[in-house]
């Protein structure tokens, strides 16, 4: 469990970090994905650029119709932020379900998004929230919608020379609700299935619903089939059943020693139903 030799550099600002970046460097934030991989020598960067102490990356701010979470904010900070709770409650409750308390105290939202573990919680949360991920490169900032940020198994739209700086979460309008439910792999406590749902609705009828699922496929996805069954419908046991049945429409479902494809598909349906039921 000894990593290969590397250089450690501490960045004082985003521009500082950008200037240090190279092909063989890795950004270090909370280190909860990177350092284990390095200890197992699955990842052997020449240089670590520590961005965890850059103040501008740690804040959580109110910007009118949305909030801005700094990429180096910890899961714990987000879980306990009243601003986040008020803007979109599942972002806080989802953050509070990540790993265990030690992981939440060190791990960061930006680090998790960049790592793009297919069983991580953040991907489903930011997709359902229709968040925007702001990244910074040498050429300046660019905004990537969460829905197009994840491109494959541990792959994202982030370029090699870019840093995630902010996550913009739209505030939910009054009368909306959101939830995140998760069926955990007991050893890692990652999601076998995680389901995030945001519902903007008038009484009874579903106006606009967004459902995102993690853990099930090679990357988190928006469950459009589930949404289609509910859009404009009165929420009932029947409509929820129909919707949940489409939890894994058009996705290749993963299989591993803990959950086979068949079982994972079943659990996806159970947890989509569970999430929808909390919003009844």
């Amino acid at each position: 469990m000894i990593p290969s030799k590397f250089q450690y550099k501490r960045a004082e600002s985003v521009s500082d970090a950008l200037s240090m970046m190279s092909d063989d460097a890795k950004l270090l934030a909370g280190g909860h994905s990177l350092l284990p991989a390095m200890k197992l020598r699955l990842n052997q960067p020449d240089t670590l650029i520590d961005i965890s102490r850059i103040e501008e990356l740690k804040s959580i701010k109110d910007e009118g119709d949305h909030i801005v979470i700094g990429a180096a904010a910890t899961h714990h900070d987000i879980a306990h932020s009243n601003l986040v709770k008020g803007a979109c409650s599942m972002i806080a409750s989802g953050a509070g379900q990540i790993g265990d308390i030690q992981v939440r105290n060190a791990g960061t939202i930006g680090g998790s998004l960049a790592h793009a573990d297919p069983a991580a919680d953040w991907p489903a949360l930011v997709i359902a929230a229709e968040a925007t991920i702001r990244v910074q490169g040498q050429g300046g900032p660019r905004d990537i919608p969460a829905a197009s940020f994840f491109t494959g198994f541990y792959e994202t739209a982030l370029a090699d020379d870019e840093i995630i700086t902010e996550i913009h979460i739209p505030k939910l309008p009054a009368g909306s609700s959101s939830t995140y439910v998760k069926f955990v792999q007991p050893a890692s406590r990652f999601a076998i299935v995680g389901c995030a749902v945001v519902k903007n609705a008038a009484e009874g009828e579903v106006g606009n619903i967004k459902v995102a699922v993690t853990g099930v496929s090679e990357m988190a996805y928006r469950a459009h089939g589930v949404e289609d069954e509910l859009m404009g419908q009165v929420v009932s046991d029947e409509s929820i059943d129909r919707a949940a049945a489409r939890a894994t429409d058009h996705v290749d479902v993963l299989s591993d020693h803990y959950a086979s494809e068949k079982y994972r598909k079943h659990i996806a349906q159970v947890y989509v139903r569970k999430a929808l039921e909390t919003l009844k």
């Binding site: 007991p186 050893a187 890692s188 020693h257 803990y258």
Partner: peptide
Amino acid sequence: IYDDNGQLINGSYMDYCM
């Protein structure tokens, strides 16, 4: 859990559940 090739596929705390 060993696979047929004798690889221990849950040889870490991420996979072996204590």
